[in-house]
Nucleic acid binder design. Structure first.
Lengths: 333, 333
DNA sequence: AATACTTCTGTAAGTACTTACATAATGGTC
DNA sequence: GACCATTATGTAAGTACTTACAGAAGTATT
């Protein structure tokens, strides 16, 4: 069952069938409907490989993420997949884990699969050491690379970003305005967005004349119980804090559990702000105030940008979206 | 840059290069290393389309799920993707939503992409009306279909299942043994596994001589707040219950919030059991007792089965795995 | 050293499409 | 109705691989 069968049955050449397939305008309406009818009748679907061979493209975008089970990335994957399909593109997914080696390997793999572009979901793809990002810059010469929530300078590299710095700056400022003076900052990783979040926090403190205490800036695995235990430990050590600003809701949930365990009252005695406004935010009592990083908008932007690139439009290499602060019950404001 | 460039530079025919590419034994060791060296030197990667055209396969499995942002499915996707890659297969992901129309459309789409098999993740693919599953049975004639947590009878269709009925039977029995007599059952959907979970609950009640009350069996959106509000409403109506068995942790979290809102004490006065043992289970205080449906094992089984099918091994069309009951703080036992 | 057998390599014919170029058909104009 | 422009269609040459078959080279046997 191939293009020849269709052409034979329709009494036209394979070139005409191919033109119908590709929506060429140089086909008479009569022939077009005839060919479409025959295709339908035979249940014909063009062979993707032959098509890819001829066209050099396969209407497929490679999506890479470090871990699809992370709620933030899971949502990103969902919106990306849906959005791309709306433009007639398929997605091929790669979960790379966090090792640079495997990232490079899967990068190469997707590249060799002839995807039309690569989307890197999440901030974990950009390494601290610039040389480690060279492979991305190299690949971008041959196909567009889109970063969702990450930034890298380079030809043919585009970024859709959330303004994380302003978000944490704003959140920390609100905490200070509501009376908090000892704000703990909890983060999971030193990614691009992680660094921005941290500096937003630091700037807010500076701006209000508060000291930046190193022991208030704590790294913690992305894990409810780890966060709780970390805070318990600080508490036991006698470190005083009256608020937690977390780089992820998971950690903020841990902070709620810490408060429950120690009997501190939220938000009177202890305030909490999470990040990502995920489903975790409404699991706790009281419910989390959280920064919404607007994954959906980020993904939409990334896809719009990509389609612009495909159409040869002039497109900004970097789009930044403002975060939302969703007020719930763990803050006084 | 193609196979001809390699053959020219290595001074052999393209057939020989192709043989090296495909690991044919009929190549002398000397020629093989020579060709591999040349490939490496030129940075050659074979064109997937041409390869697919010739071979008719592309080492890619289609994964379908209703919604990749659901934590259960997100984990499944992760394990499937990782596992398949271990066998040298890529995954192409489709999120179908829940409408039958789109499911069928994407099914057809993946089929036309010439994937080597289809994995349907989650129980949402099997419709109540048998005729609505015909498209799956049809497709299975041409390529293997694997169901993760779903069951459908048919040639070339394989299922990896969790024994949901025994799981809820066991959970409900434990609740009864610990003194609960009015166990509410909360569920989200009437899927294959949903029906099994329900009947496990019902059988346990029957087995202990308890009445099965229709008003104790409640459908609810998969959503923390919806579950809480539903329970609040029943409470206000004066419906008495001393335990909740939920078909998903999300609903169980809602039950915890209901208890907080009404001041009922867990587990003395009110017990809760969730399902899936997801990250939500440790978010609440007290932490959820939950049934672990063992996604990872399910995915591993599915992949092993699939590889068996590819190798022509005789493989069971249905594998069932026992669930684990993870005891935490919302039950007396 | 001739024969038989195995192992290795090359030729050429698929595989199913796209598209440049050539040619045929159609429609409009005078 | 002849001429030209436009549109529609067909031919044939890519696109980059796989693999059956034929034949060459190498090895073992007598």
């Amino acid at each position: 069952m191939n293009i020849y069968d269709v052409s034979r049955k329709a009494g036209v050449s394979i070139a005409t069938v191919s033109r119908v397939l590709n929506g060429s305008p140089n086909v008479s309406e009569r022939t077009r409907t005839l060919v479409l009818e025959v295709m339908d009748e035979l249940g014909y679907t063009p062979n993707v490989f032959a098509r890819g061979l001829g066209l050099g493209t396969i209407q497929t975008i490679g999506i890479m993420c470090s871990d699809s089970s992370d709620p933030y990335l899971a949502h990103a994957i969902y919106y990306l997949e849906q959005g791309l399909r709306g433009y007639g593109y398929d997605s091929i997914l790669c979960c790379t884990g966090s090792s640079l080696k495997t990232k490079q390997k899967y990068f190469e793999l997707l590249h060799s699969k002839k995807v039309d572009a690569l989307i890197l979901a999440g901030s974990k793809f950009i390494e601290m050491n610039p040389a480690d990002n060279d492979y991305i810059i190299q690949t971008a010469r041959e196909l567009p690379v889109l970063l969702v929530n990450g930034y890298l300078e380079g030809e043919n590299i585009y970024s859709a970003l959330c303004d994380d710095r302003s978000a944490t700056h704003n959140a920390a400022s609100k905490l200070i305005a509501s009376g908090c003076r000892n704000i703990l900052y909890l983060y999971t990783s030193q990614s691009y967005s992680g660094r921005n979040k941290l500096s937003g926090y630091q700037d807010a403190l500076k701006g209000h004349g508060l000291p930046i205490r190193e022991d208030y800036i704590c790294q913690c695995p992305k894990n409810v119980l780890a966060a709780r235990d970390l805070l318990m430990q600080l508490h036991r050590k006698g470190v005083f804090f009256d608020a937690v600003l977390a780089s992820d809701d998971t950690l903020a949930v841990g902070a709620v559990k810490y408060a429950h365990a120690t009997g501190r009252s939220i938000p009177d005695d202890f305030s909490i702000i999470g990040y990502n406004n995920s489903a975790y935010a409404v699991c706790t009592d009281p419910e989390l105030t959280s920064i919404d990083s607007r994954v959906e908008a980020l993904c939409t932007t990334a896809i719009t940008t990509l389609m612009g690139v495909f159409n040869g439009a002039s497109v900004p290499s970097r789009t930044t979206i403002a975060a939302d602060l969703i007020k719930r019950e763990t803050t006084k404001f």
